[in-house]
Design a protein around this nucleic acid. Structure first.
Length: 476
DNA sequence: ATGTAC
């Protein structure tokens, strides 16, 4: 950290400003209520300040209420750089799990129609059809040509090969295919790892959950999203697995080596970056987009696992994709900056696209109500589906509950087996591959997603649409 | 997050 961060000054009950100091080019802005502000023993606010020093940054270095310490950038951070003004792109501003995100799948069944046996069968089916845990093993093992096509065309290629329906693509962010992907910028190690992992969940905070629509806050938006009270959904939270991780590592190394040549110095080596309009910048963005396509294809292939489980367990005809949005991505977008339209590179790291109603980037079926933004809760607690409102922070909102205690501390405080019993006693089925992983994901290690989404609503970033309560948790 | 460390 370059300097100790100065005190945050409230400009509203849910918005705090950090004045420019040191090498900061813009102020910091944190959306949070007083209780959820980090005390910064861990340096999270110092990371907000560090990001504000990046070349070309405009507006502010933003942080969502679920912010916590990350690699270079805080998780929950949003930073936009002006491309024509030498603005940079930084792999640390996207994160290791490129295109990590959430897919919501609606099942044509209501909780009230199902007995406990049906829910047991659904949990078992999801556990059987969704590969999980670290390491290789996915639903679709890829040869080199198929991998290239996935990196170029994302979920669209998976659908073309029979993994799902054309209609699925209409509601996925960017139509399931990120433009300007450069498969050649994805190195051989990343390719090898990815070829064996398409259609797999991973570990850590990734999960599949069967959930019920427990509260409808915005009836019009819920109807537009095709969701009704008491309806069952499945939520998938996963990303680009080892492939994205390797792409991030490779390009952090490459940029670190190239920074001096571009005359860039940063207060933390984890903020390695390069101008968007430079060879290392273009290479990273091309590889990142390819990894993002892998991430969307991963969730698309897993959706077929969900459909198989639903057909077997419930006998329901089919399951409908409601939304698929990433919360770890950089994107070139047009935004008003100081009254002028500029092309900016928006880094969202643990932050979700939240375009407002009417914006032409919102999937057409939802244009009147705004971009759907799924927010996964911590294990066994509520998740949310929001609708974007634009607002500050380049049309972004939160991405989850936000970790409040480290994995190590969680392992010391909670026991996986006891957590499993507690969840089962609350009527939530648990299918977990690792007891240690369960302890690390204890709900007590996280803030409440309910509080986080309420702050985002009060700050004008997003509107709550439905609350989703878990009935079955499937984890690596 | 991750074939759970340079």
């Amino acid at each position: 950290m370059s300097h100790p961060p100065p005190a945050l000054r409230p400009t509203s009950p849910v918005r705090w400003e950090m004045a420019r100091h040191g090498a900061m080019r813009v102020p910091g802005v944190v959306f949070a209520d007083e209780a959820m502000l980090p005390d910064d023993d861990g340096g999270t606010l110092g990371q907000v300040a560090n990001v504000a020093t990046l070349p070309g940054i405009v507006g502010a270095s933003y942080a969502m209420p679920d912010l916590h310490l990350g690699y270079g950038f805080p998780i929950g951070g949003v930073a936009a750089t002006d491309v024509a003004a030498g603005g940079v792109v930084s792999p640390g501003g996207v994160g290791f799990d490129i295109s990590c995100g959430v897919r919501v799948i609606a099942l044509p069944a209501a909780r009230a129609e199902l007995d406990d046996g049906a829910l047991d069968r659904l949990a078992d089916g999801l556990a059987r059809h969704i590969p999980r845990g670290t390491g290789p093993g996915g639903l679709w093992t890829l040869g080199p040509d198929e991998l290239d096509a996935i990196l170029r065309d994302g979920a669209a290629h998976a659908v073309a090969r029979g993994w799902g329906a054309e209609a699925d693509l209409a509601v996925i962010e960017h139509g399931g295919r990120v433009a300007d992907a450069d498969p050649d910028a994805v190195g051989p190690v990343a390719r090898r790892r990815g070829a064996a992992q398409l259609g797999s969940l991973g570990g850590g905070n990734h999960f599949a959950e069967a959930q019920v629509v427990a509260e409808v806050v915005d009836a019009d938006a819920a109807a537009a999203f095709g969701l009704a009270a008491d309806q069952l959904v499945v939520l998938l939270h996963t990303g680009s697995r080892g492939l994205g991780h390797q792409v991030c590592s490779d390009h952090v190394d490459a940029m670190g080596a190239a920074m001096a040549a571009h005359g860039i110095s940063v207060p933390d080596r984890q903020l390695a970056c390069a101008p968007v309009e430079s060879a290392p910048g273009r290479d990273y963005l091309g590889a990142m987009s390819a990894a993002a396509n892998f991430g969307r294809a991963n969730r698309q292939v897993l959706t077929e696992g969900v459909r198989r489980a639903a057909r077997e367990a419930l006998g329901v005809a089919d399951a409908t994709v409601v939304a698929d949005v990433s919360h770890n991505l950089a994107a070139l977008e047009e935004h008003a900056v100081d009254g002028a339209q500029r092309t900016v590179c928006v880094h969202r790291k643990g932050a979700t696209l939240a375009l407002p109603p009417g914006h032409d980037g919102v999937p057409e079926p939802y244009r009147a109500v705004g971009q759907p933004a799924p927010v996964p809760g911590s294990m066994g607690t509520s998740s949310w589906l929001l609708a974007g409102r634009g607002g500050e922070a380049f049309a972004s909102t939160c991405h989850g509950a936000g970790r409040a205690r480290s994995r190590a501390k969680a392992r010391k405080t909670w026991k996986g087996q006891a957590l499993r019993t507690e969840l089962e006693q609350r009527g939530i089925r648990v299918r977990a591959a690792s007891s240690k992983g369960l302890a690390e994901e204890a709900p007590g290690a996280y803030k409440s997603a309910d509080d986080v989404v309420a702050v985002c609503e009060e700050a004008g970033l997003s509107q709550r649409v439905v609350r989703l309560d878990p009935v079955a948790v499937i984890k690596g």
